[in-house]
Design a protein around this nucleic acid. Structure first.
Lengths: 184, 184
DNA sequence: ATCAGCATGTAAGGCGTTACATGATTCA
DNA sequence: TGAATCATGTAACGCCTTACATGCTGAT
């Protein structure tokens, strides 16, 4: 029941780096952040409004030169404190909802070939994401001497290393399921 | 907005294997399933009631021998079809919410030692969970020749392989952050 | 006797998604 | 001129957690 909205921290974290609009924030989330956290417009805009009300962010400029409004937000000193307090807080929840793995766990209710198919589907998803991460890695290595990029680099490496492990598991699992053909 | 409640599939999947009470289901989730899906009483009991209404599960026995009611559920043929249709459905969502990794991503807003601390905390969590998974693995290897156990084995291996990759990443990351002492 | 575990359930409320509504700008 | 992208926001609704309420059973 206590406020526990982590999207606030994504917003604050991004604004700590650079001023941005809600739309910009969404683009960033869909970029490198989506590998460990997601967010939609329907969660970003209300969060931004509430953070402003609380004094953690402020409008640094509204373009209303004829066209549609465009609201650029900055983080305030109070917002920076909220962000730092969260970073220092030792409590972190790491929740995964892996429907693909759940389907493998309950694979016994269907033919073995359905499970093999589900592993293939999972593998394809991971392979596609891994390519994106490897692209990020290549670009980051050029600017790694700059502080700040190192944190992005570490999280990209987290993604790459875990996805590589997933792919090895996919290969192993398919081998195991194919060899022991009994349950079909 | 369409029904998308995966807890239904956890329940159906478990009941496909054996008749159980809501309480039993919760225990199973807190055991091996929690590594890829979670569930609380507040989600299990209402789901069970609705699955019964829909005809996917049925009460196979209510103990009311003097004491408090104890409702044992079984899966119906219709429930089995629902489960199989889900297994055959190619759409699976794999959502991770890794607050620990997010803290590392935004680590630039604080001292480097805070990030090192956050990596340590993550590492401890993973080490503890890995021990549990290795215990499962040891027990499963004794009964691996039995069909059905193989699916549990595969998901346990998924956990072990990814957690081992996480731990290697923790070690590497701490080394990288300690060596390049500049931002402190 | 008391405490942990077994057992079921409800209520309040937060979080988040999807779909919708609106409209400007840019580029082919 | 039409499509894609930029840009903000709301409404409906589903999902889930936490806390609460209740009471039995078995072991120490």
């Amino acid at each position: 029941m206590a406020k526990d909205r982590k999207i606030d921290m994504v917003i604050l974290g991004l604004l700590a780096h650079e001023d941005r609009t809600g739309y910009d924030i969404k683009k960033q989330i869909d970029g490198g952040i989506r590998f460990f956290w997601k967010g939609s417009f329907g969660s970003i805009y209300p969060a931004l409004a509430q953070l402003e009300e609380e004094g953690s962010v402020r409008r640094s400029g509204s373009n209303e030169n004829g066209g549609r409004e465009k609201i650029v937000y900055s983080i305030t000193d109070q917002g920076k404190e909220v962000l730092k307090a969260w970073l220092r807080d030792e409590k972190s929840t790491n929740d995964l909802k892996y429907e693909s793995i759940m389907k493998i766990f309950f694979g016994g209710a269907e033919d073995r070939k359905i499970t093999l198919q589900n592993i293939d589907l999972f593998q394809s998803q991971i392979e596609a994401d891994l390519k994106v991460l490897q692209f990020y890695k290549k670009n980051l290595e050029k600017v790694l001497d700059q502080e700040d990029h190192i944190y992005f680099y570490l999280t990209v490496m987290f993604g790459i290393k875990s996805y590589e492990a997933y792919l090895r598991w996919c290969a192993d699992s398919k081998k195991i399921l194919s060899q022991r053909r009994r349950g079909e």
